[in-house]
Nucleic acid binder design. Structure first.
Length: 506
RNA sequence: GCUCCGAUGGUGUAGUCCGGCCAAGCAUAUCGGCCUUUCGAGCCGACGACCCGGGUCCGAAUCCCGGUCGGAGCACCA
């Protein structure tokens, strides 16, 4: 150790240039270590043999939202990596939970995200297949028709006791099944139950319900069917029938996977490889489709793309880029630990994608009207993008002793006698509540630099996700400009008209 | 309550399977500096983490046991 210290001391005696020189001569390798920023990638999937078949399986209760985007991107990434098929499967076997427009919206959302599904499947079109699968299970004695009251059925499960219907013969169950899927009037609403293990330690896995009667008309199939399969049943049947090789989904599905495995076992099907990742909790924004729907009906939101919502289309409308979603979810990885979604990081990624293409403009929030005394006639000269004259300019003729609008907050923070810089124009000094011209020089003592607008500015509203819209004035030069812009010192926004923009992020 | 799972800085992650190259990498945030006519971008720097306690081992973020804390599920939703 003393030798090491001695050596280090010796090296440190030398100048940096000298050190570099020696290193260059003798050990060129160490200097070329430039840590290349490795693009983070998803871990390899286990049990991949050749091409994969994966799926997205949303229910059509509404358009896709931020939470769905994760599943979409992850599946898409793996299919792109290994090659194969990505199936978009619409899970619409609950007529009570369907928004007819959602079938189309979901596909649009996928395309916008750059998620290229290669096959589109709608479950309500596969009812006969589900019935056939159910018959097989009944004939095997692995499924039975039950007409117990809900409470009795649940109580039996908790007590690990069999209900009276569990032991009826397959023939008898099949007969009941056929009558329920037929068009006879029903006196009771029986269900089809998959037999598992009444003593399974996890009550969630004990005999579970596979079909139930819903008399309501289905948006796609009308009144043609009334005995609808539940998610666990169709997922198992479809995952096999569509040839899924790998299934990745959230840990909230772990028990469902256990239930679905019974069907695979009974029918001798090969299981796909399952992976369950931790759930990412997304806060500060409305994510539940049912809540959104309610709010839209109540007029609280303008539609599925309202700024306050976290649907893909709402975020797209505000100016988030598809690449942002992709990078964020890849960076988040496939951890099996639950985590919190970070708007901070999400926004930071988005900023990288939009900054260079966003022109800069002045917006004064909560403006205060002032007159600048002793001010000569001037010209304001401002870049559309900092340090890049090729992008063009915003130019204004400012008359002498002009009336200007400045952010009230910045003015109130000014101390008596202090000087502030109006960006692209000149300096002003505050004196006894009045404002005086204070020279045009930029350099010299470091001053705060703020945005401003003139009398030709336009009333402008920024709609914000939290519902507290900002009102102020936008510089005239922005008229006609539509799209993502940066309002200097305020935020990035998506300008949608000459009077309105949607708030994006700082 | 029952079943299962997990625990790395303020936040998100890498590493954990197959112990040593990890006195722990990256991103983001924060704070400084440079640059800049934005509180934006870029560059440089600083700050900051292996839940606790035992055990195995020459060696533990990594393996084992216990504890604590957190989470998911327990629907005739998906």
């Amino acid at each position: 150790m003393p030798d090491v210290k001695k050596a280090v001391d010796q090296v440190n005696q030398l100048s940096l240039e000298k050190q570099l020189e020696i290193a260059n001569e003798k050990y060129p390798d160490i200097l070329h270590e430039e840590r290349k920023e490795k693009e983070k990638t998803l871990p390899e999937l286990k049990n991949v043999h050749g091409k994969v078949v994966m799926r997205l399986a949303p229910s059509p209760s509404g358009p896709l939202h931020l939470g769905h985007s994760r599943l979409c991107i992850l599946n898409d990434e793996y299919v792109k990596r290994y090659g194969g098929e990505l199936i978009l499967r619409i899970e619409d076997t609950n007529p009570n939970n369907i928004l007819p427009e959602a079938y189309e919206m979901i596909q649009e959302d996928c395309r916008w995200l750059g998620v290229n599904f290669t096959k589109y499947v709608v479950q309500s079109e596969r009812m006969l297949f589900y019935y056939e699968t159910a018959r097989s299970l009944i004939k095997q004695g692995n499924a039975y028709m039950c007409s117990c009251r809900v409470e009795d059925f649940k109580r039996d499960l908790m007590n690990s006791t069999a209900c009276p219907h569990r032991d009826v013969s397959p023939e008898e169950s099949l007969e009941v099944f056929e009558s329920v899927i037929g068009d006879m009037a029903l006196t009771e609403h029986p269900v089809l139950v998959i037999k598992t293990d009444l003593h399974h330690p996890n009550p969630a896995v004990r005999d579970w319900i596979a079909f139930r009667v819903i008399e309501k008309s289905h948006p796609h199939t009308g009144k043609k069917y009334r005995f609808f399969p539940l998610m666990n049943f169709c997922v198992a049947a479809d995952d096999h029938d569509l040839g899924l090789t790998n299934v990745i989904r959230g840990t909230d599905h772990i028990n469902n996977t256990e239930r679905q495995k019974y069907i695979f076992r009974y029918l001798g099907w090969k299981l796909p490889d399952y992976f369950h990742y931790g759930i990412i909790h997304i806060g500060d924004i409305i994510l539940k489709t049912s809540m959104m729907k309610k709010g839209i009906i109540a007029g609280e939101y303008t539609g599925w793309d309202d700024v306050k919502l976290a649907t893909i289309r709402a975020l797209a409308a505000r100016g988030y880029k598809p690449e942002t979603f992709r990078k964020y979810w890849i960076d988040s990885g496939l951890n099996d630990v639950n985590a919190d979604f970070s708007w901070e990081i999400f926004n930071s990624i988005n900023r990288q994608y939009i900054d260079r293409s966003s022109d800069r403009y002045f917006f004064v929030n909560s403006p205060e009207k002032i007159s600048v005394l002793d001010a000569p006639e001037s010209k304001a000269h401002l870049n559309l993008y900092p340090n890049d004259d090729s992008r063009g300019f915003r130019e204004y003729d400012i008359k002498s002793n002009p009336t200007l609008y400045l952010p009230a907050e910045d003015l109130s923070e000014m101390e008596n006698g202090s000087i502030i810089r109006l960006k692209g124009l000149y300096n002003i000094r505050k004196e006894d509540g009045k404002y005086y011209f204070a020279g045009i020089e930029i350099h010299g003592e470091r001053k705060k630099i703020i945005q401003w607008v003139g009398e030709d500015s336009i009333p402008f509203t920024i709609k914000k996700p939290d519902g507290n819209d900002d009102h102020g004035l936008l510089e005239k030069h922005a008229t006609g400009k539509i799209g993502i812009i940066q309002l200097e010192r305020y935020s990035f926004v998506k300008k949608i008209s000459d009077s309105t923009a949607l708030f994006l992020h700082r």
